Computed example of a mutant assay.
Amino acid sequence: MSKKPPPGMIGPPPSARGGRPADPGLHAQQIAREWEDVGESYIRRRMQQVGIPEDQIGQPTFSGDGKWRAFDPNGRAGGANTTGVVVDSGVLNPDLLKGFKGGRLWRKMRIKDRIDSAISHEYEELLAGGNHAEAIREAARSRLPISEEARRLNRARAR
């Protein structure tokens, strides 16, 4: 008696399930929402490791549930810094800096290094009172112990 081989796929094909968005920013946001707890844990721990003061790690989601977060899966800019430092789903988007200084380097970087770059930029921007241009310059000279690749990206963005 021969056994029937199992089907190649169980359930509807991925294309019938909605799949992933073609836009890299939306795709990054979708992944960030699915892995929000992992992102929050990693980014909070990394901020502690590089020396972000505890009271500046994260901030409440002002337009959402008010929950204090170091990782915002709904944001798509890379990060924010109203009252503290936040990294968002933009770090997962390979096209985040497309057309900007450092864009080609960003695309090739590990997510870990993108996160370090975002942390240092957002921290410097918080210290600079929200001045983005000054934060780009200062992140290139950041005293935070970020990865060498993140430091390289920060220098490329400051040129």
Rank of each mutant, 00 (worst) to 15 (best):
A16N: 05
E122D: 04
E125D: 03
G66W: 05
K3W: 12
S147T: 15
D95V: 00
M47P: 01
W106V: 09
A16Y: 11
P21Q: 08
E134T: 15
G102N: 12
G25D: 04
A118N: 03
G58A: 07
H27R: 14
G66S: 02
A133I: 07
S89G: 04
F71K: 05
D23I: 06
L105I: 15
K67D: 09
P60N: 09
E149Y: 03
W35D: 02
R141L: 13
Q49F: 00
R107M: 11
R46S: 00
I10Y: 12
S120P: 01
I52W: 01
M1Y: 12
D88W: 07
R114E: 03
D37L: 07
W106A: 04
R141N: 12
S63K: 09
A70F: 04
K4N: 10
L153I: 13
G90P: 07
A32Q: 08
Y123C: 01
M109W: 04
Q56R: 13
D113T: 04
E125A: 10
A150W: 09
P7I: 07
N154I: 02
A77T: 14
E125L: 02
P60V: 06
A158Q: 09
A139T: 06
G129W: 05
L153C: 10
N154G: 03
F62K: 10
P5H: 08
G51H: 01
G84N: 09
S142L: 01
N81C: 15
A77K: 13
F100P: 00
R45A: 11
P7V: 12
K112R: 14
R44N: 05
T82D: 11
A128D: 11
G99R: 06
R69P: 02
A158S: 15
